[in-house]
Design a protein around this nucleic acid. Structure first.
Lengths: 190, 190
DNA sequence: AAATTCCTTTGACAAAAATCAAAAAATGAA
DNA sequence: TTCATTTTTTGATTTTTGTCAAAGGAATTT
């Protein structure tokens, strides 16, 4: 799995052996079962995880107790409650494993040590943050200037393998609509 | 104005004199008049700007030619078309000065040299990217789980000084609604 | 001050989406 | 396979929001 992490990081920047091992040696294994949470709302997130299989769902609870999915993270990827990790405030978001998964965990304190010690690792952190920002921006834009139907079409075009597996109820709130409306959009499309 | 830049960057990290001057010496002055663009859609953005007065508006054009405001950046701040700068793709977004403004400009190539040369500057870049990601996430969430009325209330609570100055037509699309709907929300609130 | 332009509000109506309730389909467990 | 549970679809209705057109205000220019 560490080889996959190396490959994953390589898309951002080529780390030398020394730098990569510094990271890899600080990571610990953890397993999550389907539907378990990597981060829960109200808790402060102090870790990041790398995973190579399955996907995570980010969701919020409304005052009425309804779940609103705000994001999906598909493998291979690094996942964390970004806002909580950075601000040290309790997370607003639940980060839920949607499959049985194996994780490689890195604690925030170790991450910060790595950032301080290695310029290149700080840089990877920047590149990842930039990517997170761009993704969030894209999602935001799709909500502002596309119809629910367009958003759904794009979602299945961009991630066909995964979208098949995701129950509609989770996708609908990600698109900013109800299950029923999504079901109707879907009928129209086919 | 460079002193204000120093102060601005200090909120992220304390740069030493050497690091700060490396940045400041590469920046050039530029003036924009109200309604002029710092970045235009279809052009590739290769610069960032620091400004101490006024605000910028980010907007997109729909297929029908309607403008959709996606963001506001209030002084003092650093502004750029983030996605275009990072991906080197043409910008989807217009970045428009909403006041007469003085800018300090840094080119992308100089920025990248600074990133490579100074670990601390790379780090500032990371911290700023993280902040951009968090802001975008907040805006996204407000669209997913708040009503237009709640979004409007939050906007005026968080930036009362500025919101007064922004024409409704620009705010409404930022909130994901039409001018007319915003006008009705507003009547209800008062 | 009058005139022009720009911005905001209002009303009437249409369209889109939400809600509620129930049926149908799919999934997983015994 | 059958049963139980979960997920998706459908229909009827209500609510919300958008659209279009016009009027009212505010601000700016001449």
């Amino acid at each position: 799995m560490k080889e996959q992490l190396r490959q994953y990081l390589n898309q951002y920047i080529q780390l030398n052996e020394n730098e990569f091992c510094a990271i890899a040696n600080l990571m610990s294994e953890k397993y999550l079962r389907k539907k378990e949470h990597f981060v829960k709302a109200t808790s402060i997130c102090n870790k990041v995880a790398f995973f190579t299989k399955g996907y995570f769902r980010f969701y919020y609870l409304t005052k009425n107790g309804d779940e609103i999915t705000s994001d999906f993270y598909f493998a291979p990827n690094i996942v964390t409650s970004y806002t909580s990790l950075i601000t040290c405030n309790p997370s607003d978001v639940y980060v839920q494993a949607m499959d049985d998964m194996k994780l490689l965990i890195l604690s925030k304190s170790d991450l910060e040590k790595l950032y301080s010690q290695y310029h290149n690792i700080d840089r990877v952190g920047r590149l990842i943050a930039e990517k997170v920002a761009i993704n969030s921006e894209q999602h935001l834009l799709s909500l502002l200037n596309q119809t629910a139907e367009e958003r759904y079409r794009n979602l299945i075009n961009n991630n066909p393998e995964f979208i098949q597996k995701i129950p509609l109820q989770y996708i609908s709130s990600y698109l900013g609509i109800t299950q029923e409306t999504l079901s109707r959009v879907r009928r129209k499309i086919k």
